[in-house]
Simulated scan of single mutants.
Amino acid sequence: MQYLSKYLFCFCLIIYLFSCDVPAAKESKRLQTNFFDIKAFFEKEAAYLKAQDVQILKTIQHNQTKETQTITPKDWNKELSMFAGSDINKPSWKDKYLLDSTNRGNGLTLLHYKAIDDKLSIQVLDVELKENKVHSILIVKKISNQVYESQQHLTYIPRKGYTIKKSQDVTLFDKDDYSIEAKYIYHE
């Protein structure tokens, strides 16, 4: 009986130590970023836009059909999810992108991240900084396999708006083109 209780105690101690360690490990991974932290940027941007009660003049086009409407997003994180979801700070991707930093003059710096593996969906992430603040973001995504090919160009201008252009080609179907242009409207 005493033999069993020692093993039970050791087992419970190991379980306890692992359960205490897991959240800390997750938190430390979140803090370690190799590249521009796009997820954190869009979390801050969503909070700002919500606090300002910003509306969007949104034009959506699918092939030749076009519609424009003014909306007030209920959830800015969801509205900006295509951008925030383009985070390249995954542990398995730390050696999958090359960074080229270029000084463009007038206080502009371009951080150009290019995938070295053409199988990665995020092929390009360009972050243009003006005096260390984000001036614009361009994301190029590409998905390709035997039956489906899709390419997206996402452009974001902080506090002004965004555009999303998507082209998809599915075998045996016509090619589809989509675009969304969103302009932010602030209340005076």
Rank of each mutant, 00 (worst) to 15 (best):
I56K: 00
D100E: 15
D100I: 10
P73C: 08
A84F: 05
L110H: 00
W76V: 02
K66Q: 15
N63W: 02
D87M: 08
K94M: 07
T72V: 13
L57A: 14
N106Q: 15
I60Q: 07
K96L: 04
T59D: 11
D117H: 07
I116S: 09
Y113E: 10
K114I: 03
T72D: 09
W76H: 04
N63I: 00
K74S: 14
N89W: 01
Q61L: 07
E79V: 13
P91F: 05
A115R: 05
D117E: 11
Y113G: 01
S86R: 00
Y97V: 04
I60W: 02
N63Q: 04
T68I: 11
I60F: 03
I71A: 12
S86L: 03
T72N: 11
A84W: 01
R104N: 09
N89S: 08
H62T: 09
G85W: 11
D117Q: 10
K66M: 14
P91S: 15
D75G: 11
V54S: 06
L111T: 06
Q69I: 11
K96D: 10
F83G: 00
Y113M: 07
I116T: 12
D100N: 14
Y113N: 05
T59Q: 12
I60V: 15
E79W: 12
L80A: 13
L98H: 08
L108W: 02
T59A: 08
Q55G: 09
M82F: 13
D87P: 00
F83I: 02
N106H: 13
I71V: 15
E79T: 15
T109E: 03
Q55F: 12
L98G: 04
M82Y: 01
K58N: 10
K66Y: 07
K90S: 10
E67Q: 14
K78W: 09
G85P: 12
W93R: 04
T102K: 15
D95E: 14
L111Q: 15
L108Y: 01
A84M: 02
T72M: 09
L120F: 05
S81R: 14
S121A: 06
H112F: 09
T59C: 08
L57D: 10
E79D: 13
P73A: 08
D117Y: 07
W76E: 03
N63F: 02
K96W: 03
K74I: 10
F83P: 03
I60K: 09
I116W: 01
T59K: 14
S86M: 06
T59L: 07
D87N: 15
D118R: 13
L57Q: 10
K74Y: 10
H62P: 00
M82Q: 07
E67D: 13
N63R: 02
K114N: 02
N89C: 08
L99M: 13
N63P: 04
G105C: 10
L80K: 06
N77G: 11
N106G: 00
R104D: 04
T102Q: 13
S121D: 05
D95R: 01
I116E: 09
L108H: 07
T109Y: 00
L57T: 06
N89K: 03
A84T: 06
L111E: 14
V54A: 13
A84N: 04
H112L: 07
V54I: 14
I88D: 02
D87A: 04
M82C: 03
K78E: 07
S92R: 12
H112I: 01
G107I: 04
N77S: 15
